[in-house]
Structures are given as C-alpha cells and as structure tokens.
C-alpha cells in the first residue's frame, strides 16, 4: 500500500515543500520583526490577500513579474500603514484592528476581483524556474530543489537579511528594545512610535510579498481567499520559531512539508482515506505545534501592548 513512496516521490516532496513554504517564510519573518517591536499583527491574512491581488493585477496589466512583486509589497505596506496608524497612533487594541484589517482585505480583494477580473478567466505567466548550474545536476534532489523560480531562492536572502538586521545592526537592537522595554528607548531619546511604524511596515511589506508569490510564483490566478489561512498559520510559525528569523525559515519549511504531503497523498488513489483528512492536516499541525511550544516566556515582553509613555 505504501509502495508509492519512492526516491522520486520524496525528492518531489522536498522541492514542493520549499515552494509551498515560501509565502509562509516571507510572512512569518515579517511578523517576527513586527512582534519583536511589540506589535502583534493578526491582520496578516488580509494583508497577504491584498498583496496577492495587487501583485496579480499589476502583472496582468503590465506583464512584468517584478512590477507585480513590487506592487504586492506596496499594497501590503499600505495596509500596514492603516494598521500602524490605528494601533500605534490611535493606540487601539491590536487584535481588534487586525480583525478589521482581515475583513477589509477579504472584502476589498473579492469586490475588486469580481468587478474587474472574474469574467476574463485569464491568468498571468508565473515566474519561470531557474536551474542553478551544477547543483541542479545532482540526481533526484538537484532536480527537485534547484529548479525553482527566483522568488523561492530569495527566501534564503530575506532570512539572512532579517537575521542581520535584528541581531547585527543598531536599528535591530533598538527595535528589539522597543518590544521589551519601550520606556528605556523613550528615555534614551528615540521614538518608540517611529520604530514600531518601521517594524510594521517591514512586516506587512513581506506579508504582501508572500501574498504576491501565491499569484505570481505558484498559481497563475487570483482566487478569493487564495491565502486559505496562511496569514494565521504564519502567526503560529512565529511562536514555534521563538521569534527568530532563521527559526521562522525552518518552521515554515516544516509546514511546507505538511502542505506538500497533503497534495501528494491526495493524489494517491490507492489510499482509501477521505481527502478532507489531508486538507485538515496543516491546520491540525498548527494547533499541535502551538501546544508543543506552549508558554509565552520567549515572547517580547510588551507584545500587543500600546506604548503610552509609562
């Protein structure tokens, strides 16, 4: 019954895992940066949807993938600016504003999509795979891992940049202090609000990029609710990764493996299991992951709390 598990099957699985992890890697690393500054953004789902839609729309109109990716980032940051204004300047509850952002993102993308695109039914040309010389010639594994599109490869670069930013620059040091001891930063004469705005904008820009990948590097179409909960799963990834960018990269890969497994197993007709079991797999694993790491002891101390000068 399990004889479909071959080397080819496993190699495809690993390659697919990286590709399916890509939107989670971008989004969760963005959220790591945001949460390290003390801002919990549960509006990632709506932000990713905006990135996915605007990225699709820009590429649809221009034919340029780079322009689409840029538009996805800008759309994400636009939503980030709304989120930051209400949570940092108005000091409203971050969870409530995040929920509103999700509603706005779902509604706005579905509204615009149904108004302009639903009848065209055409897609865009997604980013082409690029074979990396020598590495892609490794039997099985090379074929699966090193013939991805440039967006998938760029996850490594983004992870390294985020790690350097957080741990090796004075901006990162201050940003982490803003999440743990905002008062100290305030007394040192730097603006807590400015750092939090910066962190939220970086975070939502990456979420927008993660969304844009879905329409430009994965599926070639926008579909309503295309993110299917990835914005929420990214929140769990951050907790499981203990607020570290490299951790977020590897935890995302693990979730990518669940997604890949789900798709591969669904395609196996000899397994007499309802397809819904596989559909539910990433969500069940998210709950299990949260239970396993449990406690909040590694979280930034002022996570989710507006800074009011005290």
């Amino acid at each position: 019954m399990l004889d479909f598990i071959t080397i080819g099957f496993l190699a495809t699985l690993v390659g697919a895992a990286w590709r399916l992890a890509t939107p989670l890697i971008f989004t969760s690393i963005g959220e790591v940066i945001s949460e390290r500054a003390g801002v919990l953004n549960i509006g990632l789902e709506g932000t990713m949807l905006m990135g996915a839609f605007c990225g699709f729309a820009a590429t649809f109109a221009s034919g340029s993938i780079l322009l689409g990716l840029g538009s996805g980032i800008v759309a994400g940051m636009a939503f980030g600016l709304i989120f930051a204004f209400f949570t940092i300047t108005v000091k409203a509850n971050q969870i409530v504003v995040g929920a509103a952002i999700n509603l706005l993102g779902m509604g706005l993308t579905a509204f615009l999509f149904r108004t302009y695109y639903v009848s065209t039914g055409r897609g865009v040309d997604i980013a082409p795979p690029i074979a990396i010389p020598y590495l892609s010639d490794i039997p099985f594994l090379g074929e699966a891992l090193f013939r991805q599109n440039m967006i998938v490869y760029s996850t490594i670069l983004v992870t390294l940049l985020a790690a350097v930013l957080l741990y090796r620059t004075s901006f990162g040091l201050t940003l982490r202090a803003v999440g743990d001891h905002p008062k100290a930063v305030d007394v040192a004469g730097r603006s807590v609000a400015a750092y939090r705005y910066g962190a939220v904008l970086i975070g939502t820009g990456l979420a927008g990029l993660g969304g844009a990948f879905l329409t430009l590097g994965h599926s070639n179409q926008f579909v309503e609710g295309i993110t299917s909960g990835r914005g929420f799963i990214a929140l769990a990834v951050v907790v499981f990764a203990r607020w570290s960018p490299t951790g977020a990269f590897f935890v995302s890969l693990m979730f990518g493996l669940f997604y890949a497994l789900q798709l591969q197993l669904q395609a196996q007709p000899m397994l007499n299991i309802p397809y819904q079991v596989f559909q539910a797999l990433p969500y069940v694993m998210t709950v299990i992951a949260l239970v396993m790491v449990g406690g909040k002891n590694a979280s930034p101390r002022k996570l989710g709390i507006a800074y009011d000068g005290r």
């Binding site: 108005v90 409203a92 504003v97 929920a99 509603l103 779902m106 706005l108 579905a110 509204f111 149904r114």
Partner: peptide
Amino acid sequence: VPQVLVSIIQGIVILSVVTFGALRFF
C-alpha cells in the same frame, strides 16, 4: 454590486468604533 461589500463596511465600522473608543478613553 458584489455582496462582499458588506465585509468592507464591517471592517470600517470596527475601525471607527475603536477610534471613537480610544479617543474617548484619551
């Protein structure tokens, strides 16, 4: 007009309510 407009309105209602609440608190 696509029916999804209702969730946009909901989002705006929530943002208005929290703004109002925060200003009153302030």
